[in-house]
Simulated scan of single mutants.
Amino acid sequence: MSKFTFRIDPLSNQLKFQQLIDAVIDAISRNLLQVGDILPSVNQLVKESSLSRDTVFKAYAELKNRGIIESVPNKGYFIAKATTKVFLFLDTFKAYKEVLYGSFLDNLPENISVDLHFHHYNMDVFEKIITESLGKYSKYILMNFDHERVPEIIRQIPKEKLLIIDWNIHTTPDMSVVYQDFGQTLYDTLETRLEQIQKYERFIFLYPEFTYHPKESIGYFEKFGQDFQLNYSVLQNSKKFNVQKGDLYLLVSDRTLARFLDQCSEKNLVPGQDAGVISYNETPMKKYVKDGISVISTDFELMGKKAAEFVVNGGPMRIQIPSALKVRSSM
């Protein structure tokens, strides 16, 4: 007798045949179905779930096409492959994302495969890739971004299969989220090194026009400057970025970090002595560049590990990954 049962969800936006496909894949990912297990017959599903024969045949045909199930004449359909597929959707692939991705893969069992995609903050790409992925994966791991259409698009993914990572935006309390904080955490981490910050004449936050870094960080940076009576400013035009002796810079883009280092070299300024810099997001190389670049960063390795836990064990999951300021010679 089959261990698998199926009921139509009348509130789902998914077509009935897609619901059946999703249910089989999900049962495999949770080990409710294993290789060799028999699925209900077409007649049994028609009787128990009020599906039409065409709908059941269409769903089983698609599962066969993917190699997930096989059929044996006069015996029925059975599970042929236990591999679980996960959809991972990142914004861009930068050095610190490689740390997250590596940790994610390292903490997954061998029978789970991952399809990696990038949206590059392009709404059309975001919508197209998600729409085409619906029903093909047991879990969906997404990096959201600040766009009004994001909620309606991710709403198509069943919440029990969806995990939002990195930026807690466009989420609801019943969604699973593993994220970093870009507001109060910035304030708190800077406060831990207040004395070192105060030795500089000015504290400048370069928030370039091309960045997608959350804007809430600007408000918390300004509050920090006000509360501790610093000479601070926010520069949002990268063309006006001009490194000066005695200034400390907070940079959210590695592109502007390279420009900072170039200008220091051109002006014979020693990072950490003549001008200081704090860079956002740890990468494997920042501890070695110019004897070490100070960073404010969340633990991307832990974020990847928690995302893998969601894939293996399921949700719900709402976890804020801590961030810290690592001081090196550049400060």
Rank of each mutant, 00 (worst) to 15 (best):
S2P: 10
D9F: 10
P10R: 11
L11W: 08
K16V: 15
Q18P: 00
A23D: 00
V24R: 01
D26T: 07
A27C: 10
A27V: 03
N31E: 11
Q34H: 07
G36Q: 05
S41G: 13
Q44I: 09
Q44M: 14
V46A: 08
V46H: 08
T55V: 12
V56I: 09
F57E: 12
F57M: 11
A59G: 03
G67V: 10
I69D: 04
F78M: 07
T83D: 14
V86R: 01
Y96P: 02
S103H: 02
D106S: 14
D115Q: 05
L116I: 02
F118Y: 07
H120N: 08
F126Q: 04
L134M: 03
I141P: 04
I141S: 04
F145C: 04
E148T: 13
V150D: 04
R155A: 15
I164L: 02
T171Q: 12
T171V: 15
V178E: 11
Y179F: 05
Q180D: 06
G183A: 06
Y187Q: 00
E191C: 13
T192P: 00
T192R: 10
E195D: 11
Q198V: 09
R202C: 02
I204D: 02
T211E: 15
K215A: 08
Y220R: 05
K223F: 00
F224C: 05
G225T: 05
S233P: 01
S233G: 06
V234P: 01
L235A: 07
D247W: 07
R255L: 08
F260L: 07
L261Q: 00
Q263A: 07
C264L: 11
E282L: 04
T283M: 10
M285F: 15
K286W: 01
Y288K: 11
Y288H: 10
Y288S: 04
K290P: 00
S294V: 12
S294H: 06
D299F: 14
E301I: 05
M303H: 06
N313G: 09
G314D: 14
G315K: 11
I319K: 07
M331V: 02
